[in-house]
Design a protein around this nucleic acid. Structure first.
Lengths: 193, 193
DNA sequence: GTCTATAAATAGATAGAC
DNA sequence: GTCTATCTATTTATAGAC
């Protein structure tokens, strides 16, 4: 039921998602959905909470681990990528919420999102204190990591479409992207640029 | 009428957009929309074509200009940013289409999107031939530039929401982002990393 | 070209039997 | 907990007068 809802919201967005379709895909009666959740919006909110809570926790775990700052940067990138890979609905929903101005995000979710940025900022701060990093605006590092990851993992359908229409493959694999982003982030933070 | 439609599609997505609302915002009768466009989908398609054609042309103009490759990279970034800044509906619609797998993009639009990537690839190629750049996967450079730009310019509403909920400002201005992306791209291409 | 009125389908949500 | 049936609102789209 939740899985069906996640897929439907990812595929069509909140407005486009149909409770009838969710019920059909989950092989349950539509009335059952309203028995468990008070409304379509409430169901969506629960999915958003699960999603961002999981990401927030993972980012926090990386920031609080005992690795050197440079390794933490790599682990941060891998954590977001792993989350995007394991939950295919996550990147599309994330992209749609950005586009919509976060209309459906409640205070809990906004805290989790803030937490991700703060976790990254804490890693950078630690690196600066230890003399490993030069100070760079964490928001810029964040957007340079998270935006490509979300776009990449959220654009599977579009990339297939483009390739079917003749864009030469140039297939970028997740490991190659992760390695690329690590190079970008560390290149900036370790001042090799 | 087109402007109202662009705003509505950007705000609510294709499924969420209402022809009634577009008509009201444009101060025209709803029947007039169906007089000029055969359907809601056709209206949306025209907006998508305008949008991607404009971006494709700008990217192509940069690639075909007579600047040194390193300057072209900067101009490419500025061109996408200028387009995103001048057309506020562009980034949200772009993000939504990515999330939706490009369902509404016809062959014309797919060609324009391909063209943007190819323009960037041509710039990189030129730099490599002239011994200025090391060879890097153009798709990786592309996603490192375009994803942050679309996310940044498309997330104005979300960022306002986050700041209202207490995320410390760290306001990133468009010029700072552009300079940052130039450093990222040239750092990779000029092999300083 | 511009309008009113309305058709036809689908949406979210609920009442009430079991 | 689970189902059928249904209410109400909204949607895209069109017919037809002017």
């Amino acid at each position: 039921m939740r899985v069906a809802a996640q897929a439907e919201f990812a595929k069509r967005g909140f407005a486009g998602a149909s409770v009838d379709k969710i019920a059909a895909a989950a092989h349950v009666n539509k009335a059952m959905i309203y028995y468990h959740f008070s409304s379509k919006a409430a169901l969506y909110r629960e999915i958003l909470r699960d999603m961002f809570q999981a990401v927030g926790r993972r980012a926090r775990a990386v920031a609080e681990s005992n690795e050197p700052p440079a390794d933490k940067i790599g682990l941060f990138i891998e954590a977001i990528a792993a989350e995007a890979d394991a939950r295919p609905h996550f990147p599309p929903i994330w992209l749609r919420e950005v586009a919509e101005g976060g209309t459906h995000l409640d205070a809990t979710v906004l805290r989790d999102i803030t937490g991700v940025v703060q976790s990254l900022a804490a890693i950078i701060d630690e690196g600066v204190r230890r003399g490993r990093f030069t100070r760079v605006n964490p928001v810029l590092i964040h957007v340079s990591i998270v935006a490509p990851l979300m776009i990449h993992f959220g654009s599977r359908g579009l990339r297939e479409r483009l390739e079917r229409h003749g864009l030469r493959g140039a297939g970028t694999t997740p490991p190659a992207l992760i390695e690329h982003l690590r190079r970008v982030a560390l290149g900036l933070l370790e001042g090799r640029t």
